[in-house]
Nucleic acid binder design. Structure first.
Lengths: 396, 396
DNA sequence: AGACTTTCTCCACCGACAGGACAAAGAGGG
DNA sequence: CCCTCTTTGTCCTGTCGGTGGAGAAAGTCT
C-alpha cells in the first residue's frame, strides 16, 4: 500500500480532517454544519482532499427526509503507530486514521537498557502487528517516554529514570527506522491527550491528569492544549515535597511525593510489611511470588487486608495533599487519576478526594470531579496516535 | 473630546493597533517589516484606521538614506483608566494609548467597605486625574480586585477577603458610571500582565508572578496568555499547605502559606516579637507608630534587626517551599516576586531562591531567573490598562 | 402523481491580497 | 548642480478565496 504523503494544504482542510478523525464518516452537509464555510467552498476543499487520497467516498448515508447524502471518510488504509514506553513495560498499538485501536501489544521491558535495546523491541512488536495483517506500513508514529522531552525536536533531556537516553535523537532515529513522521512526548502528556480524545476528559479544556506508576507525573491541559513548560519538564510532580524531612529520595532531597507513594514505594512498603509479618496476607503473597508489586497490594486490599488498605489510604492522602495544592494553583475543571496503580481503585480515589476537598478552596473544588481514567493502558497509545495525527493533520 | 467609538474591523487592524501600542509611532515601512502583509494591503488598512480616528499621522521620521517615512501613531487623545484595588489601598492611573502612565494616585482604602464605597472613592480619584487635565474622559478602564473573578462577565465570585463583593456586577456598574468599556480581573493577573507588558517579563511566554501583599497570589502566564482556571480562582496559592499542622488560617485549615507568611502574618509576628521584647528595634517602632506593618519590618531589617531578618528569612523559606512545588509542576521560564512586601528586598529573594533551587529539579531550575518585579505599584495599573486595550484592540 | 425536503453542484460576483510599475523624496558623488 | 541610487509610499491589475443564489438530483410523504 502506498503510504500517506499528502498533508492538508490549508487550515480548512486541516479542520475537516480532524472532524473526520474525531467523528468518523460524515456527509458534506454534516461537516458544513460544524465549520464556518459555505457549502460551495466546502465542496471544493473536500474534492481536493479526495484527490490527495487522504479522504475517500464512503457510500450513501440514510436519508433524513430528502436526498441521501454521500458520506466521506478518512482513507481506510491509513495507519498510525502508538508507542507508550514505561519504566518497566511498553505498549504498542496500531490505529486507523480515526484512532481506533486495531491491535495492541504490551510487553515487560526495562527502560534502563537504553534506547537501542528498547527500540529493537518496539520495532519487533510493530513488526508482529504488521505480520498480523493490521498494517502494511505506518503513516506516522507517536512515542511516549517516561521523562522530560524537548518537544520540538523529540529528544529526551536529563531523564532521571532513563540513563542512556539523555540527548538521544528519538524522533530522528525512529523516523528513519519506520520511514514515517514521528512525534515524541512525555508519557504522562500522552495519557492526558488520550483521555481528552476518547476518555473521561472529552471536551474538557482545562484539566490535570495524574499518572501514578513506577513514578508520579501529571499531564497539564490548559485551554485544550498540553502545557509542557519551557524545558519540557512541566508536570513532574513526583519530587514535590509531600512530607517535610520525610524519606530520602533518589533525587537527593527528602520527603518527595514519589518516595512516599508510587508503584515502587508501594512495593517496597508492602515487602517491608510482609517481612515484618505485619500482614499475613502480604507475607503469603511474598512467599508465592518472591517479590511484591502494586498488583499484590491491590489484590490483598481487595481481600480485606488491613495493612494494604492502610498503605493505599496513606499514599492517597499524600498524593491528595499535593494535588490539593495543584488544584488551588491551577483551578482545573477535572482531575483524572491513572497509571499502573489504577488497580488500587476506589480506596485510593476516596483518600485523594477526601484530602483535596478538605484542603483546597471551595471555589476551586465546588464542581471538581476527581475520577479514574477510563482508558486504562490504552490511554497512552491513543494519546500517541492523537499526537502524530494532530501533527499530520496540520498544514505543512 | 469625542471618545473612542471605533474598534478594529479585522485581525490585521487589531495587529497593527497592538504594534503601535507596544512600540509607539511607526512608519508604514517599519510596520510592514513586522506583519505578513503586502505594502499595498497594509496601506489600505492604515488608511481605514486613519479614517476611524484610532490612528493619526505623526509627521515625518528621519531619513534612512531615502525618502523620509510618514509616521503614524495611535490617537494621542485616547485615555485608559487603570485601577488596582488592593485589600488596604487602591491605585488609579491614567494612561495614553501606548499605556504610558500620565498620572497616578494611590490612597489607603478598606476593601471590606464594599463595592459602593470603594467605587465612590475610585471615581473621585479618577475625577481628580481628569481635573488635573490628564483626560477629558476615558475610552476604556481595567479594574483589578483582590479575589477570584468570573472573567467573561467581570463579577467577583466568593472572594474571601471581600465580603459584600460576591456577585456584584463590577464590570457592568463601572461601565455605566464611566461611560466606557470595562474589563475586570484578579489583581495578581493584572500585575503579571503589567510585568509582561513593560517589566521584567517582557517577551517571556511562560512565567509565574507571585504577589505577596496582604495575602499571597500567583499570576500564571502560559503561552503568553493568562491562565485563569475554570472558575477564575487559578493562582490562589495562599491556602496551599506550607506547614503540616501549622497555624490555623482564616479559611478553616491549618498551615496555609498565607497564615505563615504574608503582609498580614508578618505584621502580626512583628507585633508579637515587639510585645515580647524579643526585638528592641521593633518594640521602638511599635511604640512610635502604635501598629506595625511589613514596612516597619523592612526598615528594621535594613537597620540590622536580627529578629526582623529572621522573620523575613523564614517567610521566604516557606514561600520558597511552595514556589518550588509550583516550579516543578509548571516549569516556568521566569518567576517574578512582587507586591507590597517587595520592600523586604533581597533578604526575601535570597531565601526564596535558596529554597527553590534546593527543592526543585535541576532541569526546571537550571535556567530559571527568580527576580523582583520591576514596576512596583504601577504593575497593576499598567496591567489593567493593558487588559482593556487588549480587549478594545481586538475585532468587535 | 404532486408537493416538499435535503443534498450537492454550478456560476456569477465580491473582496482580500500580492506584486509590479511608478511617483515622491531624500542621500551622496562627481 | 546634475545624476544615480536608495527608501518610502501609492496605484493598478491579476489572482485566488470565498459567498450566496439558482437549480439539478434524489429522496420522503400525502
Amino acid at each position: 500500500m502506498r503510504r500517506m504523503t499528502a498533508r492538508p494544504a490549508n487550515a480548512h482542510q486541516a479542520r475537516l480532517l480532524k472532524l473526520l478523525r474525531d467523528q468518523g464518516p460524515n456527509s458534506r452537509a454534516q461537516l458544513g454544519d460544524q465549520i464556518e464555510l459555505s457549502r460551495s467552498k466546502l465542496a471544493v476543499e473536500i474534492d481536493r482532499l479526495l484527490e490527495t487520497g487522504l479522504v475517500v467516498a464512503d457510500g450513501l448515508a440514510a436519508s433524513r427526509g430528502g436526498r441521501r447524502s454521500h458520506n466521506v471518510r478518512l482513507a481506510p488504509g491509513l495507519r498510525f503507530l502508538g508507542v507508550d514506553i514505561g519504566a518497566t513495560s511498553v505498549d504498542v498499538a496500531v490505529t486507523n486514521a480515526e484512532l481506533e485501536i486495531l491491535g495492541h501489544l504490551d510487553e515487560p521491558l526495562d527502560v534502563r537498557d537504553g534506547p537501542v535495546a528498547v527500540f529493537e523491541q518496539v520495532l519487533a512488536m510493530a513488526g508482529k502487528l504488521k505480520d498480523a495483517g493490521l498494517a502494511e506500513g505506518f503513516d506516522g508514529a507517536g512515542i511516549g517516554v517516561p521523562g522530560p522531552v524537548r518537544f520540538p525536536d523529540g529528544v529526551p533531556v536529563a531523564p532521571p529514570i532513563m540513563p542512556g537516553w539523555d540527548g538521544f535523537p528519538v524522533r530522528e532515529a525512529l523516523s528513519q527506522e519506520l520511514g514515517c513522521p514521528v512525534m515524541v512526548d512525555n508519557d504522562v502528556n500522552l495519557m492526558a491527550m488520550g483521555e481528552m480524545h476518547a476518555g473521561v476528559a472529552r471536551s474538557v479544556r482545562d484539566f490535570l491528569c495524574v499518572k501514578i506508576g513506577t513514578g508520579i507525573g501529571c499531564g497539564i491541559v490548559a485551554g485544550g492544549a498540553v502545557h509542557r513548560g519551557v524545558t519540557g519538564s512541566a508536570g513532574d510532580i513526583g519530587h514535590i515535597q509531600a512530607v517535610p524531612d520525610g524519606r530520602p529520595c533518589a533525587c537527593g532531597n527528602r520527603g518527595c511525593l514519589e518516595a512516599h507513594f508510587s508503584g515502587a514505594a508501594l512495593a517496597r512498603d508492602a515487602t517491608e510489611a510482609a517481612r515484618q509479618q505485619v500482614s499475613a496476607e502480604l507475607a503469603a503473597r511474598l512467599e508465592t511470588h518472591g517479590t511484591l508489586t502494586a498488583v499484590d497490594v491491590a489484590a490483598a486490599a481487595a481481600a480485606g487486608d488491613a495493612t494494604s488498605l492502610e498503605l493505599i489510604r496513606e499514599g492517597g492522602t499524600r498524593t491528595g495533599q499535593v494535588i490539593a495544592g495543584l488544584v488551588s494553583f491551577f483551578n482545573p475543571g477535572l482531575v483524572v487519576i491513572g497509571g499502573g496503580v489504577t488497580g488500587l481503585g476506589h480506596t485510593l480515589l476516596a483518600a485523594i478526594r477526601t484530602q483535596v476537598y478538605r484542603q483546597s478552596l471551595p471555589l476551586a473544588t465546588g464542581n471538581l470531579p476527581i475520577v479514574l481514567g477510563e482508558l486504562g493502558r490504552t490511554a497512552g497509545v491513543i494519546g500517541a496516535a492523537r499526537l502524530i495525527s494532530d501533527h499530520l493533520f496540520s498544514p505543512a
